[in-house]
Design a protein around this nucleic acid. Structure first.
Length: 292
DNA sequence: ATTAGAAACTA
RNA sequence: CCGUAGUUUCUAAU
């Protein structure tokens, strides 16, 4: 039994469908909404499953939408068709099962049973152990810069099913519809589908392994990585070599100005600020909560 | 213990 | 109108 068979199994597809419907998200480029999805699948499920199985299924391009971020910049979203979201979710579920036990215990983003709070707790542990020189690594537009070949190559180590890998690659190359015209996607994982977060963790799983092999203390939340060392000298040395490794091995660009060695008090992490109370490191929310 | 709905936050 | 993942809180149900 190949992985593609568990992906297109009735139970897996049904779980994926329920998840997409529960989200009540907006429609993709074909304009179909989640309320219409059930009837459409009922009518076409045999043909859909068959085309996935014999590799003729072609994902639709994602619908490009820009949403404003806190810092005034715009974040590009790629919204897949509701049907493609079901198929992506169906791919993601077994992939997650495979990778969850392999992922680093210091990787906290987008993973079941893990939260920002856990990452903060780990960071505080490092600080209170005396690792007070922090390297804040900023990867430039991570989601848009992921290298397709490197990602597939990484997946191949655990997923030895060519039909599944072929389908995933089609989703990576599905393209984006921007005001009427289609734009090819030659790199990146489309932000907006259930697969993107899983694939991002698979890609940066390689970084986790490298950091662990070097015996470094770190926490990672999605592309947000912090490394903790005991001296400024070590921090600078590690920052340079890790930056070099990321650019050479992961084909990503590390932002030279935003990547820096900082003291904990000067750094904000996942919405929290570190502060030292009589020799002990604590944390407080960066954004003030309004009192009710 | 699970499922379902609402809100907030992180990326 | 703007997607996805996780977490937290609340409510309801089995």
């Amino acid at each position: 039994m190949e992985l593609i068979d568990v992906i297109i199994s009735k139970e897996n597809l049904n779980r994926a469908y329920k998840k997409v419907v529960a989200n009540k998200g907006a429609g993709g480029v074909d304009g179909m909404i989640v309320e219409e999805l059930g009837a459409y699948i009922k009518e076409n499920k045999d043909e859909i499953v068959r085309s996935i199985r014999n590799r003729t299924y072609m994902p639709k391009p994602v619908r490009r939408v820009y949403i404003p971020k806190d810092n005034g910049k715009m974040r590009p979203l790629g919204i897949p068709t509701v049907l493609d979201r079901v198929i992506q979710q169906a791919i993601a579920q077994p992939i997650i099962d495979i990778y969850e036990e392999l992922f680093s215990e210091f990787s906290y983003g987008f993973r079941p049973g893990r939260s920002c709070h856990d990452a903060i707790k780990q960071a505080l542990e490092y600080l209170n152990e005396g690792y007070e020189w922090v390297i804040d690594i900023d990867i430039e537009q991570f989601f848009d810069k992921v290298n397709h070949d490197k990602l597939i190559q990484t997946l191949r180590e655990q997923v030895n099913d060519s039909t599944t890998l072929n389908l995933i690659r089609k989703y990576l190359k599905a393209g984006a519809m921007e005001k009427g015209l289609e734009k090819a996607t030659t790199s990146g994982v489309p932000q907006g589908g259930p697969l993107s977060v899983v694939l991002s963790n698979v890609y940066l799983y390689k970084l986790d392994k490298e950091l662990e092999q070097r015996g470094l203390r770190f926490t990672r939340y999605a592309d947000d990585t912090m490394v903790f060392t005991k001296s400024e000298m070590a921090a600078n040395r590690v920052m340079k070599s890790i930056t070099d490794w990321i650019e050479r091995k992961l084909f990503l660009k590390v932002n030279a100005t935003k990547t820096k060695v900082v003291r904990p008090t000067r750094s904000k992490y996942l919405g929290f600020t570190f502060l030292n109370h009589g020799g002990e490191w604590k944390v407080k929310p960066t954004t003030e909560k309004k009192k009710s």
